[in-house]
């Protein structure tokens, strides 16, 4: 669809303020939170099915990812000591508040699960922590979709129905990619299945989202966001192909396929991030859909 050209604006200036967040911090945070959260679920599954090495590797991956994601969040605040103010209140209307509390509980759980797995100490507590991380992990992976959508940014807000599912699928693809890369070959059956499932849902939901967004979907096709989204699709498809076909037999294929899935997931998050920024910077994406909404409401009021 070609964007409607006739709209007015104030000297072409954006109507809303684009987020001032750094892509590396916030898109990186989306990616790492997904990798950590979905990884905790795979770790719990591996533990329950007696795949020790797989479980330990994923616990370490989740701990690493959540630590980096917390670092990204704190870095974005400018001054680290400001993070304490995040835990000053609990506010369900603020996805950032909810997310901070989630991280504050999930992070230590992921840490305890990893520590127990590596040292072999306190196996009961380790199992409890593994379970806790697996329960909270999916929320860590999907709430970031709400974090983005709960703004006036057209490419994010208008996609509020799809973003959490896209992020869940993308997180599953990332975590299964990591599992393929780091777990023993004979144990990676579930990782391959999760890669195929997560990857294909990621591609499908992304397509549905772009179409449903109409005019605003253009923000996901143009410029940097478009390049990243296309790269994400190619990497995810390639990762699924390589890991799915040969990831059970060849160590190299598992590692390459896994890496492609990880990169694909990262590209999806950066693509979503830049689509949001672009949709905020161009007044067309704010004005045209709102104008159309008003006109539709008027038409409903006085049918011709």
């Amino acid at each position: 669809m070609v964007p409607r050209a006739d709209f007015t604006s104030y000297y072409g200036k954006p109507v809303i303020k684009p987020p001032s967040w750094q892509a590396r911090d916030i898109a990186g945070y989306f990616f790492l939170g997904g990798l950590a959260g979905a990884g905790s679920v795979l770790a719990a599954g591996a533990q329950l099915t007696g795949r020790r090495a797989f479980a330990t590797a994923m616990k370490l991956s989740s701990l690493g990812a959540v630590s980096l994601s917390a670092a990204a969040l704190v870095h974005d605040l400018g001054k680290p000591e400001r993070f304490v103010n995040m835990l000053r209140v609990v506010k369900p209307t603020s996805p950032m508040s909810v997310g901070s509390w989630l991280l504050a509980v999930y992070g230590p759980a992921a840490g305890a699960a990893a520590a127990s797995a590596v040292t072999g100490r306190l196996p009961r507590a380790g199992a409890a922590a593994t379970l806790a991380a697996a329960v909270l992990g999916p929320a860590v992976a999907t709430y970031t979709g709400v974090l983005a959508a709960d703004t006036a940014v057209p490419a994010w807000h208008d996609a509020y129905r799809e973003l959490p599912y896209l992020f869940a699928a993308s997180a599953t693809a990332a975590a299964s990619g990591m599992a393929l890369a780091v777990s023993p070959l004979h144990d990676n059956g579930p990782a391959r299945a999760a890669a195929l499932l997560g990857g294909s849902l990621d591609l499908a939901i992304g397509g549905v989202m772009e179409r449903r967004l109409g005019l605003v979907g253009q923000a996901y096709r143009d410029g940097k966001a478009g390049r990243l989204m296309r790269a994400a699709q190619a990497l995810t498809a390639a990762g699924m192909g390589v890991a799915g076909l040969m990831g059970g037999r060849s160590r190299l294929a598992a590692a390459v396929g896994g890496a492609a899935l990880l990169c694909g997931s990262a590209c999806t998050r950066f693509g979503v991030f830049y689509a949001g920024v672009a949709s905020a910077e161009d007044p067309r994406y704010t004005v045209v859909p709102q104008r159309e909404r008003l006109e539709a409401a008027e038409r409903r009021q006085k049918p011709a």
């Binding site: 959260g37 999916p138 999907t142």
Partner: peptide
């Protein structure tokens, strides 16, 4: 939606 997405994960 986030809750449902977490469950589907």
């Amino acid at each position: 939606h986030a809750g449902l997405a977490a469950l589907s994960l």
